[in-house]
Design a protein around this nucleic acid. Structure first.
Lengths: 244, 244
DNA sequence: TGCATTCAAATTGTCAGACATTTAAATGTA
DNA sequence: TACATTTAAATGTCTGACAATTTGAATGCA
């Protein structure tokens, strides 16, 4: 973990990068303690606040954790799946909300990725993930549900579908695609009829996975994509219309 | 953007979270200027260094950018694709390297996701992405290439394959899956014979995309997955063997 | 000796004030 | 008008200090 060149900009960013590089390169092992802030300040010839700003940058990325007290300090953090999930979701959500992505584009990406999971899910689905899907389907069929709660349950169903594939890397990668859709889905008003249609397709997917029928699941998923697209387009058309 | 409760821990984290929530909730628009550090310090009743630590946390996540000078300050940053790519890649790479993911699991996830792109890629591939794939194939056929350069070119090929789908959301989601595999692939020693096989499969994929043949591309991709898996397993077996 | 208590040291968290640097607007001048 | 200078506002950095927290060792007592 070395020095900064004669660069003149943003010392804390440079220091953070140097430490990050050391972690990524494996020079700092998980749970290893970094030098104290005072030692780091001395090493990089900067003041302690500057070092602290650098450490906070790393903490924001879950690369380190800090502990107060004697023999405390900053430690290289094992990036856990929940932490990675969280970052993935907030990043994906912001990317979609800030870059005027069309509903179609986001929808296409989400369903393409989910279809990638169905063959594995049909093969490996567990009683646990099936039960989750059934429970969410039951929840979606409740009459008094708000649109927002319906969307939340929809997301939970799709998450269970992805988890059925039994591949944690896949679950991590899909977390963003599934969760980031929720704000877009929340713009849709779900009529009783559209809810019924969605619940029916969800049931077909769960049935297919339970019966280890990959193609049937994929077909139902594609139908769901097409139906979601029409719902989204209706919303856009209604917005474009001159009068309410 | 409001107050902190009577919580006693880590003011800078609380402040960062409050501002982040305001951004995610849309209370702070892209390119909007945040109050100055002094004003924020006053608003939250903390000192300026504490505010600065909070702002550095947000800067590390590309949520804000800062500008010096008069009428400078912190501005809500539009999360661009390149920035999101970068975060995606480092997070995915660390997740894989720190959690003892098996080669098989990572490989399965990567190829499942790539297969999700091939139908779209076969439909929308452009002369540009095809040219990139051809160029990388040509590069991979060079005799004097190091294993590392071969891997780098392999990653570039797959990235072009993903980009062929013409869906930026998909490209973003796949960035982590594709790039994070590179360290794992770097452990493999590519013989002349295995390189030949891979180049052959890459060529089949490129040909299939050029001819808009989705199934052929998918078949070649599946063969490539199987072959990559055997290469990875050979490495693992060689490591497990008692003597060199 | 054995155990509980106390104390000291190390380290992060926070604060206050100051100065340096950068940038753009305002001002002055030819 | 066009250009140079000044000025003000803001971030970047430093110094020094104190508070809070945690651990380990020293201490006191039975």
């Amino acid at each position: 973990m070395k020095i900064d060149p004669a660069n003149k900009a943003d010392l804390s960013a440079q220091i953070a990068e140097a430490i990050r590089d050391a972690i990524v390169a494996g020079q700092l092992i998980v749970d290893e303690r970094l030098p104290s802030e005072a030692e780091l300040a001395d090493h990089f010839s900067v003041s302690r606040p500057t070092v602290r700003e650098a450490l906070k940058r790393l903490a924001a990325q879950s690369l380190i954790r800090t502990q107060r007290g004697a023999f405390g300090g900053a430690f290289v953090n094992r990036l856990s799946y929940p932490e990675a999930y969280g970052q993935q979701i907030t990043t994906a959500t912001l990317l979609l909300s800030m870059n005027s992505i069309s509903f179609d584009t986001a929808c296409e990406a989400r369903y393409a990725l989910e279809r990638a999971c169905t063959p594995l899910a049909a093969q490996r689905r567990t009683p646990d993930t099936l039960a989750t899907m059934r429970a969410e389907i039951h929840c979606q069929a409740q009459p008094g549900l708000t649109d927002e709660s319906f969307c939340a349950s929809d997301v939970a169903f799709h998450r269970a579908l992805v988890d059925s594939a039994g591949n944690p890397v896949l679950s991590y990668q899909l977390a963003g695609a599934v969760e980031a859709m929720q704000p877009l889905m929340n713009m849709i008003t779900f009529t009783a009829r559209s809810r019924e249609a969605i619940v029916g397709l969800h049931t077909r997917i769960a049935d297919a996975l339970e019966g280890h029928e990959a193609e049937a699941a994929q077909a139902a998923l594609s139908e769901l994509e097409a139906y979601t697209l029409t719902l989204g387009r209706d919303v856009m058309a209604a917005r474009a219309r001159p009068k309410g």
